[in-house]
């Protein structure tokens, strides 16, 4: 039985059945690379879960609406009515989510508020993460900065963030700008330390040390091995700072040192709705729902993206 198989193989593998392949330069190059692309895999892993697709679509629609509505609609979110008949109206055809205690349209206010709060949070996130990345990169590559930066970090993070915010909002007259300054002046140092640690650990990881020993120029290591990692971290951190900033604005409004009362922000709308909740609960419903969806969605997106950007989770 066994010898028979061997005999058959001999018949099959007769030399005249083979011919030498022609050397093909492009084909030989192809074998050396996989068609793995970091970003394609990250995005594919990210969107693999239906839940994430749903949340991204939802948040996309909310933000689109928040920017389109103020641009297209003629309703003024601050228009006060002198006619008491139009105050505290329940939801109806004219006012989809009713009116508040001085006759302002809640549907319009909610979208204006979403836009303003989101823009504020987005600018804060960009500034925190942007400054944080640059400072973190310099810090990671420059040991001399250590003593100063660590002391700044200790001092700033030792003051609880709420106390710091309360303090700054208390001494400044709050407006978009001062609120931005208050939050952005603290956030960057936390991000800087985070990025410094990540850059250090990526730079000193074995494959980069090995690559450096093989003579890869620094520029290539930075552009191919460090920046892609950092970009995904930047996206993740930005997504996570946004809900935090929105929450801070709501918190400051509650304490009474948030945006001026006539500013249309989610924090103001929710707190105004809160004061009339006992009699007119519907006034708080829509703004709160939007607020919850936005904060949860960004939080989830940030975390899911962090998972997806980790090459160990790629397929």
């Amino acid at each position: 039985m066994k010898s028979e198989t061997v005999k058959n193989m001999d018949v099959l593998l007769r030399p005249e059945k083979f011919r030498a392949a022609v050397f093909d330069r492009t084909a030989s190059e192809e074998g050396g690379f996989s068609n793995y692309s970091y970003w394609r895999s990250t995005i594919r892993t990210f969107f693999r879960s239906k839940f994430v697709v749903f949340i991204v679509a939802l948040i996309g629609m909310l933000i689109l609406m928040a920017f389109l509505y103020p641009a297209l609609s003629k309703t003024d979110p601050g228009a006060i009515s002198t006619n008491p008949m139009t105050w505290n109206k329940r939801p109806n055809a004219d006012h989809w989510f009713g009116t508040d205690s001085i006759g302002r349209d809640i549907w319009a206010r909610a979208w204006y508020g979403t836009r303003n709060s989101f823009l504020l949070a987005f600018f804060i996130a960009c500034s925190d993460v942007g400054v944080g990345t640059v400072v973190g990169a310099l810090w990671g590559y420059n040991k001399k900065m250590d003593p100063v930066m660590i002391e700044i970090y200790n001092v700033m993070t030792n003051i609880p963030s709420t106390v710091y915010l309360v303090l700054l909002a208390y001494i400044m007259n709050t407006s978009f700008l001062t609120l931005f300054i208050a939050m952005a002046s603290r956030g960057w140092i936390v991000e800087a330390r985070f990025f410094r640690n990540r850059i250090l650990s990526i730079r000193d990881s074995e494959y980069n040390v090995a690559s450096k020993c093989l003579g890869t120029p620094m520029r290539r290591i930075v552009s191919r091995n460090i920046i892609p990692h950092i970009v995904s971290l930047i996206i993740m951190e930005t997504a996570l700072v946004i809900p935090y900033s929105i929450s801070s604005e709501v918190f400051l409004s509650f304490i009474g040192i948030g945006m001026p009362v006539d500013a249309v922000t989610l924090g103001n709308i929710v707190n105004q709705g809160r004061s009339s909740f006992a009699l007119h609960p519907y006034q708080m419903l829509l703004p709160t729902a939007i607020l919850c969806v936005i904060t949860i969605a960004f939080y989830v997106i940030g975390n899911k993206f962090a998972d997806a950007s980790d090459p160990r989770n790629h397929v």
Partner: peptide, 14 residues
């Protein structure tokens, strides 16, 4: 955990 950490605490506390 996600709910408590993402939603502004004022809202659920209220």
């Amino acid at each position: 955990v996600v709910f408590v950490r993402a939603v502004p605490s004022l809202i659920y506390l209220f």
